[in-house]
Design a binder for these strands. Structure first.
Lengths: 247, 247
DNA sequence: CGGTCGTTTGATTACGATCAAACGAAGTGG
DNA sequence: CCACTTCGTTTGATCGTAATCAAACGACCG
C-alpha cells in the first residue's frame, strides 16, 4: 500500500475517488495542485487549538489524532485518522481551529492550501462532492463515538473502538487480515472512549480471556470477529463503506 | 422572530447569509427553489435510521433532535436543532440515514429536495460554502459534546449544555435575555449528556442551590452567567459565532 | 376525577476512578 | 555491555460518582 502514496497527488486522487467518481478533466486538474511534503515526529502538532489554519493535509503514512483538553487538564481524543485520509477538512471553511491535531506516530503528510482545494472543489463539482462527503462521513463517526461514550459500558466501548479500527484499516489499506497495528497507548485508548488507562487495561485483558482478541505489544489480532462485534454493539453502517469505492 | 419565518425561502436565505455573503444573483436563484411546507407533531420522525433520505429540511419553528439507539435500548441524543437551522445537511450527500431525527416539540419545516440544494450549491459557490460551513460548525458541536460526555463530571455536563443552548438561541433568535425555554424532559437532557434523568434532576437542583440558574417548569433563567460558564467549563469558541453574521 | 407522564427525593448498589506498587520494555550514558 | 532512567503495562485495594431501585408528588389531559 505504502508505495501507492509515493506520489501524493496520486494519493489525493485515490482518496477523492473513493468518495465520488472523478471525470478525466477533474483528475487532470488535480495533477496541478501544489502541495508541500512534510514528515512530522510523534506528538508533533499539525494544528493547534485557537490558531488560524490555512491548510488541509493528506495523511500519507502514520496516524494522527484530534483532541481537546478540558479545564482540569484531561484530554479527549475526538478522532483518529489512518493513512489515505484527508484531515482538516473542517478547516477548509473555518478560520480558527477549535481543537488540536497531533501525530500518533511519525507521519508523512502532503499539505495543501485550503484555498486551492476550495477553488478546485467548486470548479469541479465531483471534487467538491468527494471532499464534502468525506467530511460528512467523518461527522457520522463523531456521532457513533458520542453514542459509544454516552451509552455503552466500558467493555463495549473498547470492543467497539477495536472493531471500528479494523473496518477502517481494512477499507483504506489492503486486507489487514485478522490483525493490525494499533499505535496507541492504553492511556490514549482511554482518551478515545472516556475511560482511564487502568480500566482500559482491564477491559483489554477481559476481551483476551474471553478469546475475542489476542495481543502482542501494540498489535491486535481478532480472534472472534462476530463475538467482538456483538460485545461492542458494533455495526459498520455508520462508516458508509457500502456507498464508497473500496481501496 | 417567528414572523421572519413566515416565508420559508426568506428564512433559507437568512440562514445561508449567516454563514456566507450571498451575491444578488445567488439570492435571486434561491427564490425559485421548490419546497414543501409541513407541520410535524411532538415525537414524529422526520428521518429514520437505516432508511434512504432525499430531502433536507429547514426548521422554521420548534425544535428537533437527532438520536441513536444502542442494543440495550438506551438512547443517545446527538444534537438538538433550534429554529432557523438547516438540519439533515449530512443527508445531502449520504444516501442512507445512520440515525433518527425526531421532533422535540411540534415543529414547522420547509422541506427541500437534496438534489435541488446540491445543484444550486455548485452553481453558486457562495451558497455551497454557506451550506458546507454550516455543516462543519455542526461537526464542531459534535466534538464539543464528545468532550463534554467523555471528560467532564455530571454537574459540568449539565451546565455546559445549558450554556450552549443559551448561546445558540441568542444567536439565531433575537436576544433571549436571561432566560429561555428548554423544551426537554430531564430524561432527554440525560440522553444528551450521558446521564440518567434522576441524576440530571440532582444536578439541576444543585445548579439552582448554587444560584447559577433558576427554573420554572421548562424554562431556565440564567442567574449567574459567568459562574455557570465556569462550572460548565464552557467557552463559546467552538460555535464559531464570531466568524458568522449575527441574526 | 382518574390516569399518565415527568419530577423529586431517599436508599442502596455498582461501575469505573483513584491510589499505590511492581514489572517489563525501550532508550541513554557511563 | 550493563546500570539506570523513563514510559507504559499490569495488578491489587479502596473510594466515590452516578446508576439503580423505589416511592411519593405534581402537572397536564381526556
Amino acid at each position: 500500500m505504502a508505495q501507492h502514496f509515493a506520489n501524493p497527488l496520486e494519493a489525493l486522487c485515490e482518496n477523492l475517488e473513493r468518495y465520488e467518481y472523478l471525470e478525466p478533466k477533474a483528475r487532470a486538474a488535480l495533477e496541478h495542485v501544489r502541495f508541500e511534503f512534510r514528515v512530522l515526529p510523534v506528538a508533533a502538532a499539525a494544528v493547534t487549538d485557537g490558531t488560524a489554519v490555512s491548510t488541509c493535509s493528506l495523511l500519507l503514512s502514520g496516524m494522527v489524532y484530534r483532541s481537546k483538553t478540558v479545564s482540569n487538564g484531561e484530554r479527549q481524543i475526538l478522532a483518529v485518522h489512518v493513512p489515505g485520509e484527508l484531515f482538516d477538512l473542517q478547516n477548509l471553511l473555518i478560520d480558527i481551529a477549535d481543537h488540536d491535531v497531533r501525530m500518533l506516530t511519525e507521519a508523512k503528510l502532503a499539505i495543501f492550501s485550503r484555498k486551492a482545494l476550495i477553488d478546485i472543489a467548486f470548479q469541479f463539482p465531483s471534487i467538491g462532492i468527494a471532499l464534502w462527503r468525506e467530511s460528512l462521513i467523518e461527522q457520522s463517526i463523531y456521532r457513533e463515538w458520542l453514542t459509544n461514550i454516552g451509552r455503552r459500558d466500558a467493555l463495549a466501548r473498547v470492543a467497539h473502538l477495536i472493531c471500528e479500527f479494523c473496518c477502517r484499516l481494512e477499507h483504506t489499506q489492503y486486507g489487514i487480515g485478522h490483525g493490525f497495528e494499533l499505535p496507541m497507548s492504553q492511556e490514549q485508548i482511554g482518551d478515545c472512549v472516556g475511560l482511564t488507562s487502568v480500566h482500559v487495561n482491564r477491559m483489554l485483558k477481559r476481551l483476551e480471556t474471553m478469546h475475542l482478541i489476542a495481543r502482542t505489544r501494540r498489535s491486535i489480532q481478532i480472534a472472534d470477529w462476530h463475538a467482538l462485534q456483538d460485545v461492542g454493539d458494533f455495526s459498520p453502517d455508520y462508516l458508509h463503506h457500502s456507498m464508497l469505492k473500496a481501496a
